[in-house]
Design a protein around this nucleic acid. Sequence first.
DNA 1: CCATGTGTATTAAGTGATACAATACACTAA
DNA 2: TTAGTGTATTGTATCACTTAATACACATGG
Lengths: 129, 129
Amino acid sequence: METIQVGDFNFQLDLSKPLYEQVLQHIRHAIARGDVRLGMKLPSVRDLAQQLKINPNTVMRAYQELDRDYLTETRRGQGTFITSDTETVDQVKKALANEAVIAFVSSMEKLGINRSTAESLLKEVVWHE
Amino acid sequence: METIQVGDFNFQLDLSKPLYEQVLQHIRHAIARGDVRLGMKLPSVRDLAQQLKINPNTVMRAYQELDRDYLTETRRGQGTFITSDTETVDQVKKALANEAVIAFVSSMEKLGINRSTAESLLKEVVWHE
DNA sequence: CCATGTGTATTAAGTGATACAATACACTAA
DNA sequence: TTAGTGTATTGTATCACTTAATACACATGG
């Protein structure tokens, strides 16, 4: 799997999921983790597309979704900029974390695994951070 | 979302995921939870298809995947039967649980959330079982 | 043997999501 | 004015999924 570095971002694209979704997630997670400077300008649609060797429309779709969540603000003729609002970032991060928690609990319930067993399973896992 | 009862199974199909995968998961989870009698016969391909209002080929695909994991055994001309081997069931259950755990940990890591914080988030969730 | 109920295989067709390509337009800054 | 942005439209291609129709293979019970 090829890794492409663009600015502060490390993209790893494959065909297991839609490309626009992967681009979206990479940037969203980078913002949520605090790995990028708030307020910074993202690469232009054409630029990122060229570096990732994908279609500009695909990048645009990812940027539009970021805009919808107010994680970025797009200014026509200028570019797309990461929000400076810490509040928004924190909110999105919490929402994503919550989704993951819900998904996990749901999986455990579907398998008929109770809370304490699930917690035990979690303790057995090695954590890379 | 419509619920269709077939034998011991409660199916809830939608268009968010492939149908064959949903059928597969319903049955697999029912087996893993111990909600069904081991050794029992599953509905015939044509029968289940008719009741779920989907194509027999789609059901067959689900059955074939169950067979691959040895959760069922298909006998030509007779039908598809759930395994009686508790070992196999337990093994599949563990594998599915492990997948879920890994997915959760991975999500947390991508968001830059550490182990103890993740555990705290989990504690806040209401558990329905 | 035959009828019926099983699973299996093949082929064709339709649909929807995704992605690409080409092009044109709108806005901003230098 | 020019270059660099985002935006919009239209068409095309591809792939996964699903359906449909049909035929075949095997097992069981009359």
